[in-house]
């Protein structure tokens, strides 16, 4: 896993600040980290489990922009927090009822000017927050004309299929890209007696180019969530949800279904490995060559199962 150093790392540490005391209290509490090996009972996770142990970094352009919102809001929240808790503590001490306080304090019923002030200031603050966050939102939601990579992600109970599509072959009538034949399946691989360390699939993606994900569900609602992308988007049956990201750092990023979808919702993992573009192209070439089901190189319209040897000059490469 990545060393925590990116923005996300700072982010998590900031949140830790007010809880430093809590953490201190937790020192010495070291519950078993390796439950598979002892009597604690079966664990859903093997030691080489899929996509857990989320990195603290935020690695996409969009995610970094979003995560950048955290600090200013956090500071505003801390200021409000300190103001109000401070006032409470001060008043609890200063205005506590003493023995001499037998009469009534002065009966103030209100103060229009003050009340207007503390209506206006929060209104101003939230307006600024709204404008700032909406500007970032527009960037995050933006999509490019021609993404370098298009991945159709199918969610199902309880796994994923990543289908690499041909970005150059878009059919506006069906609203679909043509398949390239590269398919990465994820299913909840449990360590079992026969297979103590199941092979962890990885979806390989290039860095520094816009990648478009198109989400679909075969059954119930799931949610595509990669913490390192600072992003999630629901995967809804009967609807295609699209978004685009650009990964900035090579690395392995775990993802997980975030919308409750039934029995094994907690095990619906996937893993993304971001690599340099050259490495990505090599991988695509290898996959296309090795895979029995490879798309027509030229048209990209060949149906699944159409085997074509020399389809190495993959269209998605060209676009990349």
């Amino acid at each position: 896993m990545q060393a925590s150093g990116g923005r996300g790392g700072r982010l998590a540490r900031l949140a830790l600040l007010p809880a430093a005391g809590l953490l201190l209290a937790a020192c010495g509490v070291q519950p078993n980290n390796n439950p598979t090996s002892d009597s604690l009972g079966p664990s859903l996770f093997g030691e080489t489990a899929n996509g857990i142990g989320f990195p603290h970094d935020v690695v996409t352009t969009e995610g970094i922009a979003s995560a950048g919102l955290y600090l200013p809001i956090f500071l505003i929240a801390v200021a409000i927090f300190i103001l109000i808790e401070g006032l409470l503590l001060f008043m609890a001490w200063r205005f506590r009822r003493r023995d001499k306080d037998t009469g009534l304090p002065s009966q103030v019923h209100g103060h229009n000017k003050l009340e207007i002030i503390w209506t206006a200031i929060p209104a101003l603050v939230v307006t600024v927050l709204f404008i700032g966050s909406t500007m970032v939102l527009i960037d995050v939601e933006a999509t490019s004309e021609d993404p370098a990579v298009v991945v159709d992600v199918e969610g199902f109970q309880f796994g994923w299929t990543f289908k690499y599509m041909d970005p150059a072959a878009y059919d506006p009538v069906t609203d679909k890209y043509a398949e390239t034949g590269i398919v990465i399946p994820f299913s909840p691989a449990l360590p079992s007696a026969e297979d103590p360390a199941p092979v962890v699939q990885e979806a390989i993606l290039p860095v520094d180019v816009p990648i478009r994900f198109r989400l679909n569900s075969l059954d119930v609602i799931h949610s595509f969530y990669v913490p390192a992308f600072f992003f999630k988007r629901d995967v809804i049956p009967g609807r295609t949800n699209e978004f685009e990201i650009t990964i900035e750092q090579p690395g392995v990023y775990g993802g997980q279904c975030a919308e409750f979808c039934g029995l094994s919702h907690g095990r619906m993992f996937f893993t993304i490995r971001a690599v340099e573009q050259a490495e990505y192209e090599a991988w695509v070439a290898e996959k296309s060559g090795a895979a029995p089901t490879t798309a027509e190189a030229e048209t990209g319209e060949a149906p699944e199962g159409d085997t074509e040897p020399g389809a190495e000059d993959e269209t998605s490469e060209e676009a990349a």
Binding site: L23, P35, S43, A49, I52, P227, A258, F260, G266
Partner: peptide
């Protein structure tokens, strides 16, 4: 840190054990 809700279990490697225990 990305711990989602409505899951019965999480990995020991995730670094969430202490916080959950508290």
């Amino acid at each position: 840190d990305g711990m989602i809700r409505r899951i019965p279990d999480y990995s020991g490697n995730a670094g969430w054990t202490e916080l959950n225990f508290i």
